[in-house]
Simulated assay, not measured.
Amino acid sequence: MSDFNLSAFSDAIADIAAAAAPATASFATHQHRTATAFHWRDGYFIAAEEAVEAGEEIEMTLSSGDKVKAELVGRDPSTGTALLKPTGAPDVPSLAKAGTVRPGHLAIAIGNSDGAGLAAFGTVGEVGPAWRSMRGGTIDRRINLAVNAGGRFEGGPVLDAK
């Protein structure tokens, strides 16, 4: 019998997701779905570009449950990213940049749905060099994940085991 403690492993994954959850927010998309954004730095949040419509009013729900208005201040369709700036600069943590990953490493996708934390667990399936997206943008590295996450995770970060 193995000494591996599945319960402790499960708790460790949940603890990583819970520690990162305060860096996330959710918002309703123009398609009336919920998407996730995460605090990047200096009060700016990153979201999926296709989830944000220019000129629409954006209300983000932080992990605390607080609601804040946000403005779309930038978008890059070539990489699929949008930059949101909430009013009042909420005090939320930023996530550290992931270290080196390789196929088989653990991957934890996190999201936010009206202030409630979401988490999905899987592995890194592929790691490759920089590449050009289908829309012509340059992506600094290709990482494909074997993680089964729903639409509410759209725009949310993926965490490594650290």
Rank of each mutant, 00 (worst) to 15 (best):
A14C: 07
A18I: 02
T61V: 10
P90E: 10
A149T: 04
R41N: 14
A20T: 07
P103K: 03
F4K: 02
M60A: 05
R152I: 05
A21K: 07
G122I: 00
H32W: 03
E57S: 14
I13R: 05
V158Y: 13
A25P: 00
A12F: 13
G122F: 05
A130K: 14
G99H: 06
R33K: 12
S26E: 04
P93G: 10
L145W: 09
H32I: 00
E56Y: 06
L6T: 08
H105P: 00
E56Q: 15
G150W: 08
D66V: 09
V52M: 06
R33M: 03
G125F: 03
D11K: 15
L159E: 06
S7D: 12
P129C: 04
G55R: 08
I46G: 03
A18N: 09
P77A: 07
D66Q: 15
H32S: 15
A23V: 02
G99S: 09
S26C: 03
A96Y: 06
A107M: 08
T138G: 00
I13N: 05
L62I: 02
A14L: 11
S63N: 14
D91T: 15
I143A: 13
F45C: 12
G117M: 09
L72P: 00
V52F: 06
A17K: 08
T123P: 00
A89C: 02
A107G: 09
A47Y: 06
P77F: 01
A54P: 14
F27H: 12
V68R: 08
V92K: 05
G111R: 04
A17W: 04
N144E: 11
A119Q: 14
S113W: 05
I143V: 15
G155C: 07
L83E: 07
S10A: 15
D42S: 15
K85W: 02
D66L: 08
W40H: 15
A47P: 02
E126L: 15
I139K: 09
A28S: 08
R132K: 11
R41L: 12
D76P: 01
I139Q: 11
G88F: 12
H105A: 13
I58A: 11
R152Y: 04
L72S: 04
V127E: 04
S26W: 07
N5C: 14
V147P: 00
V101S: 05
D91Y: 04
G155K: 06
P22N: 07
A23Y: 01
E50G: 11
E53C: 10
G74L: 10
V101E: 00
R135W: 13
G65L: 13
F153T: 03
V92N: 02
G115E: 00
A8R: 11
E126T: 13
A23I: 02
